[in-house]
């Protein structure tokens, strides 16, 4: 067991099942995703089978099972964004990045996620790349935005 996981588990010494979700959230915060080893460790700590933990984690939208990319792209898909061409933005993102929501590109540069609503309907449609927002998008501009992150990295 690595140091961080054990440090997180040490914060929950009682080991009751109502700690499960907070533990998983802390692990995800630390690593960006839930790895298999981490889930097994949590199971040992709480005395729960890993199947049960996977069953719980896959139920909720928050948990990821693949590492995040260096640039994490979140697309808002609220009602207002849907009316304002969010589906086309998604298609464009999938086409450019060659991944589907919840996945990470092979080179680990980008990962994609859909959010139910970011609550900025007046700026629809919008995406968030790490902490930067790109608002009032049109599908044609997605390529340039993604390119700007690739060139920025180089």
């Amino acid at each position: 067991m690595d140091y961080q996981t054990s440090a997180i588990l040490a914060k929950y010494p009682r080991g009751q099942s109502d700690c499960l979700i907070p533990i998983l959230q802390d692990i995800q915060e630390e690593y960006g995703y839930l790895s298999e080893t981490a889930v097994v460790e949590v199971g040992r700590h709480l005395d729960l089978p890993s199947s049960k933990i996977f069953g719980l984690a896959t139920f909720y939208n928050q948990f990821r099972f693949e590492p995040r990319g260096r640039f994490h792209v979140s697309l808002c898909h609220g009602t207002s964004c849907n009316v304002a061409a969010a589906p086309e933005i998604l298609r464009e993102l999938e086409k450019i990045l060659k991944i589907r929501p919840g996945e990470t590109t092979r080179d680990g540069m980008f990962s994609l996620e859909i959010l139910a609503c970011m609550g900025a309907c007046h700026l629809a449609p919008l995406i968030r790349v790490n902490d930067n927002y790109h608002t009032k998008l049109d599908p044609g501009s997605i390529g340039d935005i993604i390119d700007s992150y690739i060139t920025g990295e180089e």
Binding site: H77, G78, T79, S80, N82, A116, C117, G119, C121
Partner: peptide
């Protein structure tokens, strides 16, 4: 609050 298009509680 998870309704798409509802963000009053958050605000």
């Amino acid at each position: 609050e998870s309704d798409p298009g509802g963000f009053a509680n958050r605000s």
